[in-house]
Amino acid sequence: MKPKVAIFSLTSCEGCSLAILELEDRLLDILGAVEIVNFREGMTPRSWDIDLGFVDGAVSTPEDEKELLTIREHCKVLVAIGACACLGGINTLKNPQGKDSYAPYVYGDQAKWFPTTDAKPISAVVDVDYQLPGCPMVKEEFLRFVQCILAGRTFRLPETAVCVECKKNGNLCLYEKGVVCLGPITRAGCEAICPTYGSKCEACRGIVSEDALKAANINLQEQYDVSLEDVLADLRLFGAHQDTTLP
């Protein structure tokens, strides 16, 4: 029997769900191997008996939290997809401003009708079996993950920094142009898409290791004339780092 797959969306742009639909030429292969029973972005729900559940989006409302608990209950394996589900994503930008500030700013005098909480990754609410990070998630990595699960092989995220893929692409390091890029501390797997097209890495796939973050704390102060505030602001963009200090 084909494994039953579901794809859910919490607070997000649902771009990671769309990334699955963007696998266009592989979709028929995927549908040959699994049965999709629940996919908000693609179909009417069919069943709540789920082997493999994917969730994109952060937990940002009491409703998200309730829905996520139900999802967890019905999924044998639960996978967070994208920066929002894995790290909280750009939704977390509201957190440091305080609820009393952001709720009226967004909803005005109707704020009381729109209950909202600080945004958090889904792992803050339920146990998560796997994470496929990135903004959006990398669809090739999603495919590799599905292949591993179907074949019973171990799936592992790359434990290397974005620099590896950037160098393999033959790019000129952005540091040579005087740009402080977060590539050295960010988990690879995106094929260094941002630096390859000239933008600095903003750590949407999360921090690769605590050791790399420690090195950043030393280097950016000692070797570069960069204010720590700027680095922390960059690290907060996708929720890669919530603290106000570096280790």
Binding site: T160, A161, C163, V164, K167, K168, C173, G183, P184, I185, S209, D211, A212, K214, A215, A216, I218, N219, E222, Q223
Partner: peptide, 12 residues
């Protein structure tokens, strides 16, 4: 202590 372990030295 400064090393990111990014492997750039190896890769170039």
């Amino acid at each position: 202590r400064r090393c990111y372990s990014c492997g750039s030295c190896n890769l170039v």
